[in-house]
Design a binder for these strands. Structure first.
Lengths: 199, 199
DNA sequence: CGAATTGTATACCGATCGGTATAAAAAAAT
DNA sequence: ATTTTTTTATACCGATCGGTATACAATTCG
């Protein structure tokens, strides 16, 4: 059935993801993409539709391969461990040596022209969805008596996400992992450590 | 001598600042700028040099008019009040109804093409300078026995700046001021409140 | 009143933007 | 071997990018 494709779609998508991650949606040109991916424009459009479609598929890949720690963290039995795994998971991803610094979900399109408004909106909703999922997890924790006293679940979720978004900026500005870990240690100070598991 | 200028330089700069704040350096086109400022391109280039020069002057204005709380906060006698004033000052600026959401120093050029690398570098240094100044202030506080035990001054400074950079993303994503204030309340929990002034 | 000076308006510059038409190349199906 | 199908290579599209040359309008100085 026709001429076989000469490039690996997954490899190409990985490269596109890294470019968008480093330079943002609008900062990455089609020339950057085709040269980086090693394919021509017709090939790119044939497989990924257009630039917007390529970005969305790259974002999907990012969520699947780089943000997988998030949903794993939600399964931790103690809320504090959920919080800590999320904070350290973000910090790890934001400072990995084999990837760009910071976070694609923020670098992608924080402030941009009208041409990228749709992508910007998509990334905002992406962040809000994560925060909502964490809020739901903390709601469960509240029912289980597993939250520090005097805190609303969704406020705690926003707090955790705010720290992680802050470390994303820090990482994009050159902060290394140990520095972010010290920030996280401080951010978790008010949250009493989980005691020995009561088996 | 010569034909008088038909526009107010300060008004024009204010408009440019707001545009860069909302759409970023690369997301703001010269057409956006000239239309918004109500001037022609030759006028813009005559007064501000070029797009880069205009951005730097807009950033200067931003620091002078929107970030003035920062250096005022450094003059607070107690380190905790320094921290709190900075956190609330950022949150106020990031959620002011008369200005774009978020922070020009981050929105301006977080991830961008090579063409904006110089602006990006300038903004990174800008953030690092603020963090360093806060660190110096906390160093003084450490000597005065005015820091919570077990914390390094520069770690505390990074912690405060990370929270503020996080609230900048939150604000850019639609979070309102009360929500950010609740985050700040939590972020300051580990830091014992300043007692009554010992007069 | 000129002459000199400065700002503005218009039109234009080459380069790059995202995107596509056309046709050749490489495989499977007949 | 020929037809059919899919991918790739090249060249091109109009629009917009940041920036400027040129001419004209408005002012001060002599």
């Amino acid at each position: 059935m026709g001429r076989p494709r000469e490039f690996d779609v997954d490899d190409a998508l990985e490269t596109a993801m890294e470019l968008f991650w480093r330079k943002g949606y609008e900062g990455t040109s089609l020339t950057d993409l085709t040269e980086g991916m090693g394919i021509t424009k017709p090939s790119l459009y044939g497989v990924f539709g257009n630039k917007e479609g390529l970005f969305l598929k790259a974002l999907e890949r990012y969520e699947r391969t780089k943000m997988n720690f998030f949903h794993e963290a939600l399964n931790e039995p103690k809320a504090r461990d959920v919080a800590e795994k999320i904070l350290r998971g973000f910090a790890d991803s934001q400072t990995a040596e084999t990837s760009p610094s910071g976070c694609l979900g923020i670098n992608g399109a924080l402030a941009c022209s009208e041409a990228a408004a749709e992508i910007q909106k998509c990334l905002i909703e992406n962040r809000q969805r994560g925060e909502r999922e964490l809020g739901k997890r903390f709601e469960r924790a509240a029912k289980e008596g597993d939250l520090p006293a005097g805190h609303e679940p969704y406020d705690l979720a926003r707090y955790i996400m705010t720290i992680s978004q802050g470390t994303a900026i820090q990482a994009a500005s050159g902060a290394d992992r140990p520095a972010l870990y010290r920030v996280i240690d401080m951010a978790l100070q008010f949250w009493p450590e989980t005691g020995a598991p009561q088996n």
